[in-house]
Design a protein around this nucleic acid. Structure first.
Length: 550
RNA sequence: GCCGCCGUAGUAUAGCCCGGUCAAGUAUGCGGGCCUUUCGAGCCCGUGACCCGGGUUCAAAUCCCGGCGGCGGCACCA
């Protein structure tokens, strides 16, 4: 029924009559057997029997009110910590939309709290590096602490327009009044008085806590925090100097004032930010109304969390203190630096954020999903190497001359690495593999098929003697022989693989093919049957690898 | 406690604004098969969801009301 209306929308007016007709037809059709139906379909509408497989690529939904060439977005981080995965969402969305509409993106450091959330001097650069790694470019860059006189100017205009007042109440009094929805005595004083007090504030007449500038909102607003929120306050920068401007200023804007003013001055058209800013949007709109400005389009998306990974700055700081984490790129953290070090590539972050989109609901992404995305990108490019853990020694015998082993560097490429093996050479196997092959014919990957014939002991170490059974891969298939990885003794190098499990870090020692030394720091490789790892450090006789995922 | 936002498979997401080709698409995961000199990748098959209850309507994932659940905000933080 619905299908018919969908295809023939013009019958909409006569639905009641149609129902009878359709009912009869459907009853008739229902009496037919499946075979009869199939026959009719094949004769009349063969295309119906063909399966369609449509893959739609996910694209960003259009931005409300966006005009090509005019869109301005901004990313406004507090430079108190490097960027983490959660920050990648507003960062990439702001960037993508600016690109999509051929507009521009602004990077603005919101560092207007030298007291409680004091900026880290290094973070200004770290954040820029994080953004560059993400592949984000921006057109303009600002630091709010260098713009304080601008905020003072706007504040003065706001007072003149009757939109703000200097409040000299102590915090206890004002708290009580606000909850009751009552005005404090200062609110209704004449504009001239407020301008005067504002000057006194700037001159340093008042100390911390004695005077604030409040924006007039609605004293009966259901959300108490919206009622006459604070725009500027006094911070004693002789005690807590600001890393950029030192103790030059003692009157500082709050987030809502600074962000609100700057979004206007910088002509931001679209704000993309997380849901926790919903109330801030409401607060800032009062400021815009007083000033007669137009508030930008705003999108509030949900929070992004990654199962098993800490993304909150405060929790990460705590971890750093408690777990003795020295570097913010420690693989246990959720910083972009840390993810990068764990072998997560930029394209994965892009795919992930694009997938998650701009929904208002929170997204809890599982690590398995993140790994799957990452694998799809690194698998085609990661070189393969053999590696063994807890080596068992095997001496190869039963042949004369040389055997040739060709190890694919990547299964989908022709390129091979060739070893020449002589009778008597020793190879290493993982202990776990050894237990499955000790009684049967097995294949050393890329080399030949062997069977263990006896045990020797050299300097207290058992060495198993393996006799050549056959060379070809076909034989091993016929016998259903297991294929194991191996590393040639003397052609090996020790690699420490760092594995992150929650807040624990394990270190496992592997012996790898020595040819891995041609890999550079930062490259991602796959150890056959172990997983993907990122080369973290390389020296002549050792390397450090960080485990990414299977 | 007060205020607000949001509920589609294990997870993420499409569809919701504008009710009908939605007996709900895609990805990932999981189960099975094929292929393969990795237990990787690829290919094929299967699995599995509209939070609950009412209402409006010929027709509700979509609109309305009520519950329940999750999350966020309630700073002289950003």
């Amino acid at each position: 029924m619905s299908k018919v209306i969908g295809e023939l929308p013009e019958i909409r007016g006569k639905i009641k009559e149609c129902i009878e007709v359709i009912k009869n037809i459907v009853e008739g059709v229902n009496k037919l057997t499946y075979e009869e139906l199939e026959k009719i379909a094949r004769e009349n509408w063969p295309e119906l029997l063909e399966e369609r497989h449509i893959e739609r690529e996910k694209v960003l939904p259009p931005l409300h009110g966006a005009v090509e060439g005019k869109v301005v977005t901004r990313l406004a981080p507090n430079p108190d910590f490097p960027l983490h995965l959660g920050n990648a969402r507003p960062a990439l969305l702001s960037y993508w939309y600016a690109e999509m509409y051929k507009g521009k993106m602004i990077l603005r450091f919101e560092d207007t709290d030298p007291r409680i959330k004091a900026p880290y001097p290094e973070a200004y650069n770290t954040i820029k590096e994080d953004l560059k790694w993400l592949g984000i470019t921006w057109n303009e860059e600002y630091i709010q602490s260098l713009r304080l006189p601008l905020f003072y100017g706007i504040a003065r205009k706001l007072i003149e327009r009757g939109g703000a007042y200097i409040d000299l109440c102590d915090s206890k009094t004002i708290r009580t009044l606000r909850v009751q929805g009552k005005a404090c005595p200062h609110r209704e004083l004449p504009v001239e008085k407020h301008l005067e007090e504002f000057d006194k504030m700037l001159e340093g007449y008042y100390s911390e806590g004695e005077a604030v500038l409040r924006v007039k909102t609605d004293l009966s607003h259901p959300d108490v925090s919206v009622r006459d929120w604070i725009a500027l306050r006094v911070i004693d920068t002789s005690k807590t100097p600001h890393p950029v401007v030192g103790d030059k200023y003692i009157v500082w804007p709050t987030y809502n004032f600074a962000a609100g003013v700057d979004d206007h001055l910088m002509e931001v058209t679209h704000i993309l930010r997380a849901r926790e800013h919903l109330t801030n949007t409401i607060k800032q709109k009062y400021l815009y109304k007083h000033m007669g400005w137009k508030y930008p389009e705003t999108i509030h998306f949900g929070r992004l969390s990654l199962e098993g990974l800490v993304l909150s700055k405060s929790k990460m700081r705590k971890l750093v203190l408690e777990e003795g984490i020295r570097s913010l790129s420690d693989p246990r953290l959720g910083t972009l630096q840390a993810l990068r070090r764990r072998g997560i590539v930029r394209e994965t972050i892009w795919k992930l954020i694009r997938e998650v989109g701009i929904k208002q609901t929170d997204a809890k992404v599982s690590l398995v999903n993140l790994y799957a995305l990452n694998r799809s990108i690194i698998d085609p490019v990661a070189n393969r190497y053999m590696a063994v853990e807890e080596p068992v020694y095997l001496q190869l015998s039963g042949f004369s001359g040389e055997l040739e082993a060709s190890i694919p560097i990547h299964p989908s490429r022709e390129e091979k690495y060739v070893y020449r093996i002589k009778s008597g050479d020793i190879v290493m196997l993982s202990r776990a593999d050894f237990s499955t092959i000790k009684n049967s014919v097995f294949r050393l990957m890329g080399l030949a098929n062997f069977k263990i014939s006896r045990i020797d002991v050299w300097n207290d170490t058992p060495v198993y003697v393996a006799e050549l059974h056959s060379i070809g891969y076909e034989e091993s298939r016929k016998l259903n022989a297991p294929i194991v990885q191996w590393v040639l003794w003397g052609e090996s190098i020790v690699g420490d693989v760092i594995i992150t499990k929650g807040y624990k870090v394990l270190k496992k020692q592997f012996y790898l093919e020595r040819r891995v030394l041609s890999e550079k720091v930062g490259s991602i490789i796959q150890l056959y049957r172990i997983g993907f790892v990122r080369v973290d450090e390389v020296s002549r006789d050792r390397l450090i690898l960080i485990y990414a995922h299977e």
